[in-house]
């Protein structure tokens, strides 16, 4: 019974007007949640947590860098799940959502790289180090850009989305391979690297802001994803009848 209702709900999501409405209702809540969690997280990260005795205040970059890195990867997993659903059930709204996830994930990847670089400068003395994680993040950024570029290169948007969905799944196989090979490569070439990011024992008092920020960016990812999907949907359905009601509502 419950399963049946879930199934009906799932199919309704495939209908553009329902999906559009859902995005419109859900997105403000997600953004509000993001603002609230960020407020708590930033307050704790900047005022409550004491400076680290080794890294001084520079470790506070962690509260941006690590959530961004997590979200860059989690974003890919979400995108891959959406891509699989889109390819198997051929649901257009899900295809659109998959494609909307790429730019948001790419933004987090870029943010992770930029903050990693800003952290590396005071700690390592260089803006860039061929550290295993930074290198695989850089490759991840190119994967995201490839997906976005492929989607954008098609004149037929729907076909572009479906082809790019295949690329998303290919990337899912590829990313662990890249991660493993790059790790192997850095251990070969550098002997032992100084491990700055994560892993080194973290004081329990440093953890709460990290969790708040991680939740915040998850909510934000959802909000941005829905906003973008909604735009894409309206853009593609310009000539459809249901769009008229939408403009009527919002004009």
């Amino acid at each position: 019974m419950i399963f049946h209702r879930l199934k009906v709900g799932f199919h309704r999501l495939g209908s553009p007007p329902t999906f559009h409405k859902l995005c419109r209702i859900l997105s403000p809540w997600l953004w509000a949640g993001f603002v609230a969690c960020t407020a708590i997280g930033l307050y704790q990260a900047l005022y409550v947590v004491p400076p680290d005795y080794q890294q001084g205040d520079s470790f506070r970059i962690l509260y941006i860098h690590v959530p961004a890195a997590w979200q860059a990867m989690a974003g890919y997993v979400i995108m891959a799940i959406l891509a699989a659903i889109a390819l198997v059930w051929r649901i257009r709204t899900v295809e659109i959502m998959t494609m909307a996830a790429a730019p948001v994930g790419a933004a987090f990847t870029a943010l992770c790289l930029a903050t990693g670089s800003l952290w590396g400068k005071p700690m390592w003395g260089t803006w860039w180090a061929w550290d295993a994680r930074l290198t695989s993040m850089l490759v991840l950024l190119f994967i995201y850009l490839g997906i976005m570029g492929l989607y954008a290169a098609f004149e037929d948007r729907r076909k572009g989305a479906r082809v790019a969905c295949i690329l998303v799944l290919v990337g899912l196989v590829n990313i662990p391979l890249i991660h493993f090979s790059v790790e192997w490569w850095t251990t070969l070439h550098q002997g032992s690297t100084i491990n700055l990011f994560g892993e080194s024992k973290m004081h329990p008092s440093m953890l709460p802001p990290l969790i708040w920020m991680a939740i915040a960016v998850k909510l934000m990812f959802g909000g941005a994803l829905l906003d973008r999907s909604r735009n894409d949907l309206v853009d593609q359905d310009r000539r459809k009848r249901w769009i008229r009601d939408v403009i009527g509502e919002e004009a």
Partner: peptide, 14 residues
């Protein structure tokens, strides 16, 4: 080239 590049990273390394 942008699609091929990430896919050949492991090959090149090994």
């Amino acid at each position: 080239s942008i699609l091929v590049f990430p896919m050949v990273v492991p090959v090149l390394i090994f």
